[in-house]
Computed example of a mutant assay.
Amino acid sequence: MSASANDWSGHTIAIVGTVGVPGRYGGFETLAENLVRKHGEMAGPGSLVVYCSARSYPERNPSFLGARLRYVNLPANGALSVLYDVVCIFSAIFRRHAVILLFGVSGAIALPFVRLFSRVQVVTNVDGIEWKREKWGFLARSLLRFSEFLAVRFSSEIVADNLGIAEHIQHTYGRSCRYIAYGGDHALLSEPQAYCRRALPLHYSLAVCRVEPENNVGMILEAFSLLPGSPLVFVGNWKGSAYGKSLYAEYARFEHIYMLDPVYDPPELRGLRDSAHSYIHGHSAGGTNPSLVEMMHFGIPVLAFDCSFNRYTTDDKAIYFSDEESLRNAIAALAGSNSAQLGRDMLELARARYTWDVVAHAYFELAQSVRSGAVL
């Protein structure tokens, strides 16, 4: 790393923009938790503080694996997420933390003031291109797009977890990004446990995602509905929206399609993944998707929706589909292909690029660089 440990005596890196740690929600929480773990293992620079939503942690432990936890009594998601992030940012400024790692652009409205009144360095992971997601209305989309602009304009350094995101930032704003992907090897840490709430076939294709149109859930279900000899286990929040409920009502009647509610227990999820012979990834938006890089560590073929984000993540070594017909053809072709080699390609790539050792080292090195002014 570019600066000695002594240079960080008394200095702190603040992690802002997540629900908190230990991770209980999603990708940024998993990222924050693994940065905390690796900071201790690697003797990373300075100390860490993680901002947490008090609404999600009633026990409010003061620390986690050596990182201090600071609680803000606001929800980290929903309409008040912007205020939550802004309050966390100003708290970090008030306490004179050296570097803020800001995950997401919700709180970017505060960054012009940070630049005016503080010397803290802000490294922002811009996440996916959030304002392009179909689920947002016009007002939310406009706010997210403006927040993205502010993040790019006023952050000390921008992180993109996918080269497709980096290209978007370069093309739209003329600014280069630091590419740091996402780890997935934590998915192998738990001992597998059999899923016991429903009998499942011995071998199947697996899909895991939020049930949203941009994840092409309907396309995947329709393709498999016409392939009775190809079992599909699909884990998703079917009861969470009218869209999910309608899909469940239409496709749960197919005996070879197993539509399971979300599985949060790591051993149980590991058991489902261990028994899959292929992974179906329908995401069309975002960046490096956590569920995809996690599955790549299981060494099975990946069938991914054909978009730049998924091609970058899998280094053009997966099988790609763009509609129901091409997905059915891909499933049929998989039976006659060298599926073992396809799986080995995914595993090799995952071990080289998507481990938390690689990710954490890159973040800590970047934090040291921005503090020393090396990248400004």
Rank of each mutant, 00 (worst) to 15 (best):
V50M: 03
Y195H: 11
G240P: 01
S91Y: 01
A207E: 02
P45G: 06
E324M: 04
D316M: 06
W131E: 05
V370W: 00
Y258N: 05
D85R: 10
S118H: 02
T18Y: 02
V359I: 15
L31D: 05
V152E: 00
Y173T: 11
N237S: 14
E134K: 15
I300D: 03
P62H: 08
L349C: 08
I319V: 15
V358Q: 14
L202N: 15
Y312S: 06
R371Y: 14
E157S: 14
A340W: 02
Y354G: 06
H361S: 12
V99Q: 06
G17I: 13
Y243V: 06
G137F: 01
P262Y: 05
R198F: 02
T12F: 01
I280A: 04
Q121S: 14
Y182S: 00
L83M: 10
R353G: 00
S339Y: 13
E222A: 14
R351G: 10
V211W: 07
H281W: 04
G17P: 10
L35T: 10
L260M: 12
Y25N: 11
R311C: 08
V49W: 00
P45H: 07
A249E: 12
A242N: 13
V217M: 09
S63H: 08
L227I: 07
F254Y: 13
A187N: 00
Y354Q: 10
V120L: 05
A76S: 15
H203F: 13
L260T: 11
H277I: 15
G10A: 11
H11N: 12
Y51N: 05
V21T: 08
H186L: 06
G107V: 13
D161I: 07
E134P: 07
C52H: 03
C196A: 15
Q368Y: 01
K239T: 11
N310Q: 05
C307M: 02
G44N: 04
V82G: 00
L111E: 08
S142G: 08
C177W: 03
G271F: 04
R270D: 00
E191H: 09
D274N: 13
D315A: 15
L35E: 05
V263N: 08
L189S: 15
A110K: 08
F305W: 05
E250G: 00
S155P: 09
F117Q: 04
E255S: 14
V99H: 05
G78I: 11
D261Y: 06
S176L: 12
V123S: 07
A79S: 13
P213D: 04
P45C: 08
S156V: 01
G164C: 12
L48Q: 03
P62A: 13
G27L: 07
L202R: 15
A374Q: 13
R273H: 02
H39S: 07
N289H: 14
E167W: 03
L143P: 06
P266L: 11
G66M: 10
L74E: 13
Y354W: 07
H168A: 09
G287N: 10
A187H: 00
F224M: 06
L111P: 08
Y251Q: 04
T30C: 12
G137M: 02
R328H: 06
A108T: 12
G128Q: 08
K38S: 02
A333Q: 14
S326L: 06
R198C: 08
S106F: 03
N162D: 14
M346L: 03
P58Y: 11
H361G: 03
D185H: 14
Y182Q: 09
E191R: 14
L189N: 11
L327I: 11
K38H: 06
A350Q: 06
S291Y: 02
A5P: 00
L342E: 08
I100A: 09
V152H: 01
A332Q: 10
G244A: 07
